[in-house]
């Protein structure tokens, strides 16, 4: 299991109903590409986060298939429509089977 994997998200606290907001997400993860070699010259096996999703009140905002070319500590910025108050759920899927989640509420105002 990758160690010290911590998600971080930036979501505005409020939005007008139907407003488009910008979301930023980060997760600390080495994204071991499978291309690097260790001291003995052996390939270090791939171990990355391979998928990221963002949902709001059960509806999908974005679903990203991720490959080793995504940099260490994967970063995403995208836009979501906020039809009503609710909760954003962010999910990252690791090659090793771990699933990391983060959520953030947003109010209408």
């Amino acid at each position: 299991m990758a160690e010290n994997v911590k998600p971080k998200v930036r979501v505005p606290k409020t939005a007008a109903a139907g407003e488009a907001i910008t979301l930023k997400t980060l997760i600390s993860h080495p994204m071991e590409s499978g291309q690097r070699k260790d001291g003995d010259g052996k390939l270090i096996p791939r171990s990355i986060i391979n998928r990221f999703t963002c949902d709001f009140n059960g509806q999908n905002v974005i679903d990203v298939t991720m490959e080793p070319a995504i940099s260490t500590n994967p970063y995403f910025e995208f836009e979501a429509t906020v039809p009503e108050a609710g909760t954003f759920t962010f999910t990252w899927y690791d090659d090793d089977g771990s699933v990391y989640t983060e959520s953030q509420d947003i109010a209408i105002g």
């Binding site: 010290n4 911590k6 971080k8 930036r10 930023k24 980060l26 600390s28 500590n73 970063y75």
Partner: peptide, 12 residues
Amino acid sequence: DFENPAIIAVDK
């Protein structure tokens, strides 16, 4: 600071 990759180490 959200964009700055150094902040991950600072959080730790």
